[in-house]
């Protein structure tokens, strides 16, 4: 390498020699690149979960709470959390989403202090977790506003979802094909409907499968021939805003928040917060308990009502962390 120009003209010769060493070197160091970038941005590494309870002045709770889970509950809990922070200025509550199962997983693993779930805990899960119901939501069958059908029976629904009734005229509607909208596997609405109709999820003959609540509403609003099922609160709200949407009475019971409240409506699901039975340190447990108490208090019931849910009447179990 006497001549500089030599290197410039044929850098590949020099590069390929070091190539293997460089490859090995970086395959080992790749993960560290990001750590390096981290330092470059000049930031210290943060604390992941909320186990940072500092000694609090007096009995005022303080620290940080992390909640993850169901996207249906997240807006509700986020709002409750904001109010909780207003009352307890030393507490920060971080609400994250990602689905019911994620909430349960995170709560079990201790990645989050509290998990949010829109389905009941499975027996295996309830061995490790304590549920607290904060509100109730119903599942209503909905059609387009122009559809003459206003009421539906369990038996008809069963036939529709099994693909045996294919035309609205068979149940008193116009001579039009029924477009059946279903929900994706694992959603609590699907489980609830399957249990109610006594059918297997795998036997349902659907034309559309929706994910989130608002998506299933839009499927119906945009197609006069569609039937779907979705959160009562969300459907009521959309109908009251003038969207062409109709909630079908089920076996003669009106699908409304009032029916859920009175306990007559058969399709109701709890919105729950779950907490680990063991493994929370004392300070954190106290904070979690304070938050659960706050979330089930009558004082925040208006938040649930505002989002179309039915606040829990306190008749259901409130978890006491023992």
């Amino acid at each position: 390498m006497k001549q500089k120009t030599n290197c410039d003209h044929h850098p590949s010769a020099r590069w390929s020699k070091s190539s293997k060493v460089v490859v090995k070197f970086w395959l080992l160091l790749c993960p560290l690149i990001f750590a390096g970038l981290l330092v470059a941005t000049g930031c210290s590494v943060g604390e992941f979960s909320g186990s940072t309870s500092k000694p609090s002045p007096g009995s005022e709770p303080s620290g940080r709470l992390t909640l993850t889970g169901s996207s249906t509950i997240a807006p509700l809990v986020q709002e409750i959390a904001t109010r909780f922070e207003e009352e307890h200025s030393h507490v920060r509550v971080d609400v994250q989403t990602g689905g019911s199962s994620r909430g349960i997983r995170d709560a079990k693993k201790g990645v989050a202090d509290i998990g949010m779930s829109s389905r009941d805990l499975k027996p295996k899960e309830s061995r490790e977790l304590n549920p607290t119901v904060i509100a109730w939501d119903g599942v209503a069958f909905v059609t387009h506003g122009d559809n003459p059908v206003t009421e539906i029976s369990k038996e008809h629904l069963k036939q529709i979802y099994l693909g045996r009734i294919k035309n609205w005229s068979e149940i008193g509607g116009a001579d039009e094909r029924i477009i059946v909208s279903n929900r994706a596997a694992g959603r609590s609405e699907l489980d609830l409907v399957c249990k109610f109709l006594e059918i297997e999820a795998g036997d349902i003959q659907a034309d559309i499968i929706d994910g989130e609540t608002q998506q299933s509403l839009k499927s119906v609003i945009n197609n006069r021939k569609a039937i779907s099922y979705t959160s009562i609160g969300a459907a009521q709200d959309a109908a009251s805003r003038g969207e062409p949407l109709k909630l079908l009475s089920l076996n003669g019971v009106e699908a409304s928040s009032a029916s859920i409240e009175s306990g007559k409506y058969p399709l109701a699901r709890p919105l729950i917060l779950t907490v680990r039975k063991r493994g929370l340190n004392a300070g954190q447990a106290k904070l979690v308990k304070a938050f659960l108490k706050f979330a089930t208090d009558k004082g925040v019931a208006d938040v649930a009502t505002g989002l179309g849910f039915v606040p829990d009447q306190g008749t259901l179990m409130v978890a006491e962390s023992k």
């Binding site: 290197c7 590069w15 970086w26 395959l27 790749c30």
Partner: peptide
């Protein structure tokens, strides 16, 4: 020459790091 070698090493490293993300 050293500067060029360093640059060559740096560029190769950056390129490998970019490719490393997909491996991760």
């Amino acid at each position: 020459v050293t500067r060029d070698a360093a640059l060559a090493f740096l560029l190769r490293s950056l390129a490998l790091a970019s490719a490393g993300i997909i491996c991760l």
